[in-house]
Design a protein around this nucleic acid. Structure first.
Length: 482
RNA sequence: CGGGGUGUAGCGCAGUUUGGCUAGCGCACCUGCUUUGGGAGCAGGGGGUCGGAGGUUCAAAUCCUCUCACCCCGACCA
């Protein structure tokens, strides 16, 4: 039997990836469209997934000495415009508040597209001495960016994220922070979300507006396109100078602080869908799945009461170790439920019916491999625990092997264009460091430099630029990005 | 902003060319009975005024004018 026999509600992943993506978002009950373009409602199942993701990352952020805080949604125009490169980068996508009630405001207010400006202006009040540093703050917040093309989770007008903002007493400490966060992000995205990433520095064209440099994590999606999964910026003293964040150091010398900022967003929900999903729908990594195990009782008239009773007992037992749900809805047949929970990506399904009752066993099915196995009741908790770990690893390693197969080396620009047209994925190649070459490649192929693989004096950087043929400064990864 | 397309029930669509009975179908929804180990069956039922405004006509989902929204391609773009 082919998948087509089962999948009645979602488009084919192979032939129509973007429709498949939209279908999964809607049918798995993650989110819904609203009256405002680009603004989605995140439904309970999707939000629960986000909450689990938040929790995983929040723990890691806090474990490294950062504290959460909250800053305002509105940023006065005069504040936003203080860092020139920053404004220029964000101006086209800022939403403005011009009226309070019926009264026109003296100065219009930006709805934050990111919070460097508002936080920078406050840090200037809070930081006076080297003893005040470092300041290590993170906030979970919503952000608005007026994008022309929007897609649920991947690029929405309003989205949820965390943004860290830190201030340090010297360049080195700021750089260490930037890299520490990069590693935390990598751990979170690879271990918790099971999404393998390539990490590295951004080119000047692609770095954050106003940053000294940006580190990024780049992930391969199911259609060969690349998703930027998170970024960590070393802002140097640019923002400290713009927002006047100064302190007296140990030697009584006045200095500007060195700041960093870093963020990951609900976009990663889109990443989870596009990395792990298949023809049947979502496939969720156990560590963040809202429901890890669903129990479907198989009900016949004669045995209904006993089976339900047993199913409830099992649910209570499993609830001590897992996020578990009993699906005792009467209106749907087991087959219908199987398909629905598969679409929603629940890692493990446990079936219990009269046959199992008699033998003190259950039937269990894994979403990742679509295998059904009988498990004796006595072994249940241990087996399921092992399965969840297994599924988590399996998702990661299959994604990892897909990633590795989709990093290709391009010898010539013709090769490069062929690969981008036909296979996509990452292309590893040399680059001279000139923005114009990067720009030309983008115009020709829509591919951009996702990140640098190595730089300058490193031997591995030596080669000829893929576009102009001159000596290269860097080995880089190109790809078409979301 | 340029080119193309689509708006009829929650979703997907037919009907529009050639105006005419109470605007129809599938899925979903509600009620009841029978069912339930891979998307159940039968019976009954609720829901739309045809994107909006104006016009032509005895009569408009259908023809005309204007307008709005959305989608695709291009341009733009963390």
């Amino acid at each position: 039997m082919s998948d087509g026999d089962f999948v009645k509600e979602i488009a084919s992943k192979d032939t129509d990836f973007s429709q498949w993506y939209i279908d999964v978002v809607k049918k798995a009950d993650l989110a819904d469209y609203t009256m405002v373009k680009g603004c989605m409602a995140i439904k309970p199942y999707g939000y629960s997934l986000w909450e689990n993701m938040q929790q995983c990352l929040d723990q890691k952020i806090k474990a490294t000495g950062h504290k959460n805080a909250y800053f305002p949604l509105f940023i006065p125009e005069s504040l936003l415009t203080k860092e020139a490169e920053h404004v220029e980068g964000f101006a086209p996508e800022v939403a403005w508040v011009t009226h309070g009630g019926n009264q026109k405001l003296e100065e219009r207010l930006a709805v934050r597209p990111t919070s460097e400006a508002i936080i920078g202006s406050l840090y200037s009040k809070w930081i006076h001495s080297w003893r005040d540093l470092p300041v290590l703050i993170n906030q979970w917040a919503n952000i608005v960016r007026w994008e022309k093309v929007t897609r649920p989770f991947l690029r929405t007008t309003e989205f949820l994220w965390q943004e860290g903002h830190t201030a340090h007493k010297n360049q080195q400490e700021a750089e260490e922070e930037t890299l520490k966060i990069l590693r935390i992000y990598q751990e979170y995205i690879e271990n918790d979300l099971a999404i393998p990433v390539l990490i590295g520095k951004k080119s000047a064209n692609e770095k954050f507006a106003g940053a000294m440099h940006t580190y990024t994590l780049e992930a391969l999606m199911g259609d060969g396109k690349i998703l930027q999964a998170g970024t960590s910026h070393n802002l140097g003293q640019n923002f400290a100078k713009a927002f006047d964040i100064r302190f007296l150091d140990e030697n009584q010398v006045e200095q500007y602080a060195w700041t960093t900022s870093w963020g990951t967003s609900t976009r990663l929900v889109g990443g989870i869908i596009m990395v792990h999903g298949d023809e049947r729908g979502l496939k969720l990594p156990p560590k963040v799945a809202p429901i890890q195990i669903v129990i479907v009782p198989i009900l016949f008239d004669k045995s209904k009461q006993e089976v339900l009773k047993k199913a409830k007992e099992l649910t209570d037992i499993l609830a001590k170790d897992f996020r578990v749900e009993l699906d005792d809805r009467d209106a749907y047949t087991p087959g219908w439920k199987f398909n629905e929970w598969e679409m929603k990506g629940v890692p493990i399904r446990v079936e219990i019916g009269p046959r199992d009752l008699a033998k003190n066993q259950v039937m269990a099915a894994r979403r990742d491999k679509m295998e059904k196995t009988i498990i004796p009741e006595n072994d249940l908790v241990l087996t399921l625990k092992k399965w969840l770990e297994d599924i988590q690893n399996n998702l990661y390693f299959s994604a990892k092997s897909r990633l590795e197969k989709n990093i290709r080396f391009a010898e010539s620009y013709d090769d490069f264009k062929d690969v981008i047209e036909q296979k996509r994925g990452f292309i590893k190649t040399y680059w001279c460091g000139n923005s114009e070459c990067e720009e030309q490649v983008k115009n020709d192929t829509k591919a951009t430099i996702r990140c640098l693989a190595s730089e300058k004096d490193d031997d591995s950087s030596k080669g000829k630029c893929i576009y102009c043929g001159k000596d290269s400064k860097s080995l880089v990864y190109f790809g078409r990005a979301y």
